[in-house]
Design a protein around this nucleic acid. Sequence first.
RNA 1: GCGCCCGUAGCUCAGUAGGAUAGAGCACAGGAUUCCUAAUCCUGGGGUCGCAGGUUCGAAUCCUGCCGGGCGCACCA
Length: 584
Amino acid sequence: MNYFQTISNTLRSEIESLIAEGSLAEGLDLSRVGVEQTKDPAHGDLASNVAMVLAKAAKTNPRELGQLLADRLAARQEFESVEVAGPGFINMRLVPGFWTGLLPDVLRAGTSYGDCDLGKGETINVEYVSANPTGPMHIGHARGAVIGDALATLLAKAGHKVTREYYINDAGAQVDVLARSAYLRYREALGEDIGEIPDGLYPGNYLKKTGVDLANRDGKKWLDTSEEDWLPVFREFAIDSMMDLIRDDLAALGVSHDVFSSERSLVGSGVNDEVVSELESRDLVYMGTLEPPKGKRPDDWEERPQLLFRSTNFDDDVDRPLKKGDGDWTYFASDIGYHRDKFRRGFANMIDVWGADHKGYVKRMQSAVKAITEDSGELDVRLCNLVNLLEDGKPAKMSKRAGSFVTLREVVDEVGKEAVRFMMLTRNSDVSLDFDLKKVTEQSKDNPVFYVQYAHARICSVLRNAAEEFPNLSLDDSSLTGADVADLQDPGELAMIKELASWPQVVENAATAHEPHRIAFYLSDLASSFHAFWNRGNAEEALRFIVPGDAPKTLGRLALARSVAIVIASGLAVMGVEPVEEMR
RNA sequence: GCGCCCGUAGCUCAGUAGGAUAGAGCACAGGAUUCCUAAUCCUGGGGUCGCAGGUUCGAAUCCUGCCGGGCGCACCA
């Protein structure tokens, strides 16, 4: 189903038969041989670099080798012509039916067109969001959520067995702060005037409900008790209540996870001790003293011996502490335990989606993964840069409810989850992104969400109108499979078909690179080809999708239109966006 | 000081297992609507791909050095 793969295989088999005949030396390295679509139609449909790549090893020159291969290929039925050009490119022009023959395949496959077996069914773990359970999600979290979610879907489409995971950071000091903040709200719920929320506690109103819920459950039970008594209770309750909040926010975005892992329970079950003693036995931890950081020396720096992991053995810059001054585990230590836990659960392939502010942490985590998996595991970290929330070009005003940040919920309520998801995927994850609340709801081509959806809606509209024009034809996909598509040879039609042909390649490349944003770019391009052809129907009636009185022609065009709609829908599905049937 | 990322059209950015004349949108200028949604499309100008070397048939892409910008750099998460 991947046309480039098909042609590439043809090429390889011709090379092999040349080798078998003794016309070419054995043992050539074919790994750099590629086939790609040409940019310039004068170069045919497809071009290969094979002759230039192999010429040296084959002890010949590119043009000569190219001609040899070109002659072989030209004899095959799928090629109309094959030429050697420029420094040795093999330019291939396929017979017209080769391209249009794709359409029935797409119609039959539906949105599974583009699926591939790149992942070979291997498991992969994608961890994303992992926001601290201390409050509602803000817009920055949303980016990681969408990118992680889309990446997971993309990898599944590419043949991986994907597990979506959320790591709950519920073990650090910040959840104690949460507990104290909840305690204050609890007292407030019981009628006390708590005044201003003191510095260092979470001021957000979202904790009021937690306080009320606690008061309803336990009454005045905790009013005159000491902190060490109530803290664990409040902590647990508040974490649960914050996780409910976060799960609701995620649901509003259409993001879900298969597994929620709790740092607290992992540490509680002793994984940190386990992993450290394992590393100890391999001489990878030691008591040592770190140099103060160069350049900017913290005021409260004190030299002290710490339990350190030899991350420098695994390409890190300095060894990293596993225990804090107070004897507790560092976050890093827990993270090592967590990643080993993932590895033990069968995930040699791991992807973490983090905020860009954790950039400095990537190397040490990768070095730890190398150590604990003895180099049989792989961790890729996708960093998500900032989201600049704008309103008509100007920085958006701050949220009233949450204080200093705009909550995800407010944005979703304002512009809808589809727009949020699409926009989050219009940039590579590691560059910052302008998110304009005004623009994403605009119905114009400036708004890629609209632009792509509009193409899909137009196609649905064509189908509706065609059903009225030809009430006796069946226009469902399986009927369209039988349409005569051979004369869809207008450059505009062929442009769309070739674009559809490259979809499996786009999926494969995006999955390999772990870059779901490529899907969004592809869809914009495909929509553009569609709109362009559509508009040519303004000037030339013969190019319209519906040709009154000409059922065969109309069916052929509808087969093309539906194929475009299917690929748009399948790309949107990767992004987690619902295609619309009409614009309102 | 060290590390990572970035530098492509006036602006925002695509484009990395090296491919032919470097793309798109915005902005700017002009044009298309008795027509399936003009909510769209078409045409045009606009570039030393930060700079300098190197690798090679070929470099925005790989390597080295430099310039410019961003982020991070005991213990916090």
